[in-house]
């Protein structure tokens, strides 16, 4: 069995979010990046199938040179090979553009299963996974918190509201977009990182995928015109001063609320 895992490299969760010069995204120079948290759970789920001796796992990511690091981390964690779509022509793609690129990779590779994260920690759109499934005409589910395979079908619990789960059965090939907490994600071991250096690492261009002119800024149907800190409505009254002063303020408020 062959499993494809789609990864996005995103700004580190604790990175400073300064707005860039044209006001359309954050300033990405000199900040730390990491693998999108949701995607780490997707990769872990695929690697567990591999550990059981049942699958080869390849990872795919779209983005500039820095993304190579995310793919190498994934190889270090145990993925067998990596495909890096590294091409300026992909820049500015909207969700549908990204889904088209991943669909072209999937059509070359014919995976039995595709795992990805429910959403990205930066854009939060949760759009690419269902779009990719549609472009490949395969079933999908999102927010999976439990995944079980048996002969050609995959049964998933998807998280709905208030802790309830919806159980769905998908016929393979299919795509599963996972929710965080699905499993406990491993770290790349030193041995894994050494071994990763010898693993196949393909770099592809948009043209290699037969998508020239169909993705990137020019083809994007939607775009961000402006990004800004949210307009603050009523915000909290802020207590300032030394720790002792702040604590005294908190204690007097708690007394006033009658909770002491």
């Amino acid at each position: 069995m062959k499993i494809m895992v789609c990864l996005k490299q995103v700004p580190h969760q604790d990175a400073r979010l300064d707005i860039n010069a044209d006001g359309t995204w954050i300033q990405e120079d000199n900040i730390k990046f990491e693998i999108n948290s949701y995607d780490t759970y997707a990769l872990e789920e695929a690697l567990r199938t591999k550990d059981a001796g049942e699958a080869d796992v390849f990872v795919v990511s779209i983005g500039p040179d820095r993304v190579g690091q995310a793919l190498r981390t994934a190889l270090g964690m145990g993925a067998d090979r990596a495909i890096h779509v590294n091409d300026d022509e992909a820049n500015g793609s909207d969700s549908l553009g990204l889904a088209k690129i991943l669909a072209a990779v999937a059509k070359q590779e014919n995976p039995d299963l595709i795992f990805m994260g429910l959403m990205s920690d930066d854009d939060n759109s949760a759009a690419v996974a269902p779009m990719l499934a549609q472009l490949l005409d395969i079933p999908h589910t999102t927010a999976a918190v439990k995944v079980e395979r048996s002969n050609g079908t995959v049964t998933c619990d998807r998280e709905i509201e208030g802790g309830a789960h919806e159980v769905v059965e998908l016929t393979a090939p299919c795509l599963i977009a996972v929710q965080t907490g699905l499993n406990q994600v491993r770290y790349a071991s030193l041995k894994g990182i050494m071994a990763a250096k010898k693993k196949p690492f393909d770099v592809k261009s948009v043209a290699d995928l037969g998508l020239s002119g169909q993705v990137g800024t020019g083809a994007a149907k939607v775009k961000i015109d402006r990004i800004a800190p949210p307009l603050k409505g009523d915000t909290a009254e802020i207590l300032s001063g030394s720790t002792a002063e702040v604590v005294a303020g908190l204690v007097s408020k708690i007394k006033e609320l009658g909770l002491l």
């Binding site: 549908l96 759009a127 779009m131 499934a133």
Partner: peptide, 23 residues
């Protein structure tokens, strides 16, 4: 944008070759 909505909406957008804006 409910659990059903976020599962279906992007799929429908791709089927329509439409632009998609989330949540």
């Amino acid at each position: 944008s409910t659990p059903s909505g976020w599962d279906t909406a992007p799929r429908a957008a791709a089927a329509l070759d439409a632009g998609f804006v989330s949540e």
